[in-house]
Design a protein around this nucleic acid. Structure first.
Lengths: 222, 222
DNA sequence: GCAAAAGTGTTACGCGTACACCCATGG
DNA sequence: CCATGGGTGTACGCGTAACACTTTTGC
């Protein structure tokens, strides 16, 4: 026990709720816990902060180590610190939410976590610790942000059609949108540019391909 | 050094940005640091988390101990954790912002802090640590929330006139508002009720007095 | 009666919403 | 030529924004 302090110190972790969209559903990335407590249960990827590491760096590192996911949009969500939230010791969790575009879904379980897997948001397994609360909050934040920012672009691959983008908005908002109004609105934001045509699916007219003008940025709109 | 751990642990603090409105200006509550580091500089009220204490409780306790302020509206803001933000040891700060109504401005310096004092937001003194960043973020959050919630009511005393309320909105948004449109809008929220009339200032017609129907709540509007 | 803030309605414009048909392609 | 999703324009209604005069009081 080489690290000693005059007063008791909590441990710090980061935990990350990674969302993606595939099979026409909102999906969440979970890892199966390899050790106690809650061994065998599913949990958010995350882990302990290193002593000279920034919080954001910790979140990105843990995400990469446990799932192989890298270069995602990520932002701090909330800090959870109920004294009883972990049975081992006092642990404060600085939580993040992240978005994975459809072309970066390849995951690879790391050494800490036995397995990493996407789950449809509507049918999540039982979760370790207070992770269900974290996920709930992350979903609310994501839904709210689609209303006043361009955050949904972070769920898109590099190029996409307007129908695909509309489908993303429909899933996030949970309602059907009018095709003409959606196109008028999304193009009026001046965040998209055309590239060339494609046919993707067979039996019908091919759709124009678009890309985000500034793929990294999330802009506040309205 | 009675508290030992296998791995190094950061310390956790909470820091609170308390806003109020008086003298027609946005004001911020600061305490003068009594010890090193940054001894003599002004800083946000706050302090170390106790090991069995919830984060919210810590923020409220520190606020009361250092300034005497209690029963304020308070919400978590962001967690700052840059490795070099404190020269003593690694310290993660879970920050909050709070609002003090005009009738709860009495402050009393506690034992930890030599002095506590309100400063006009536009003329803050030099600040300790990264507290200038925290304050900047808190101000942005406050301004944003006035646009889509009833948070501004938390800056009002128990009873007030519509002109006083309008003045608060004008200061927070930094622009003049039309009197008729403001009254139409604020009354349409159904969050205010009348009580009786008063004259407050001399030479003119007295204003009707209002109170918030649910003074504790902050509702999302729009 | 004068100064100073309180109080009160109407009009215009823009944006969001509703809505239906033709186009390009593959088989 | 038929099925399938891609692509396009207009009209209406509501909500936001602009705008000026009368009322009540203290001195």
């Amino acid at each position: 026990m080489p690290y000693s302090y005059e007063y008791p110190h909590p441990a710090i972790t980061t935990d990350i709720a990674v969302f993606s969209l595939h099979q026409q559903q909102l999906q969440l990335l979970l890892v199966r816990r390899g050790q106690s407590p809650h061994k065998g249960k599913w949990a958010l990827p995350g882990g302990f902060l290193e002593i000279d590491e920034d919080l954001d760096s910790c979140a990105k590192r843990e995400l990469k180590e446990e799932t192989g996911a890298a270069d995602l949009y990520i932002e701090q969500l909330f800090t959870f610190g109920h004294p009883e939230r972990d049975p081992r010791e006092r642990i404060i969790s600085v939580t993040y939410f992240a978005l994975a575009p459809a072309d970066k879904l390849t995951i690879r379980a790391g050494s800490d976590a036995a397995e990493a897997e996407w789950f449809p948001f509507d049918t999540l397994p039982e979760l370790a610790f207070d992770h269900a609360d974290i996920i709930q909050l992350a979903k609310e934040r994501l839904a709210a942000k689609t209303l006043y920012s361009t955050i949904a672009f972070q769920l898109m691959p590099e190029t996409f059609t307007l129908s695909e983008l509309q489908s993303v908005y429909e899933i996030l908002r949970g309602e059907a949108l009018d095709k003409r109004n959606f196109r008028k609105w999304i193009l009026s934001l001046n965040q998209l540019e055309e590239t060339g045509g494609k046919r993707r699916n067979g039996n019908h007219r091919p759709a124009k391909i678009y890309r985000a003008i500034s793929p990294g940025r999330v802009d506040i709109i309205r």
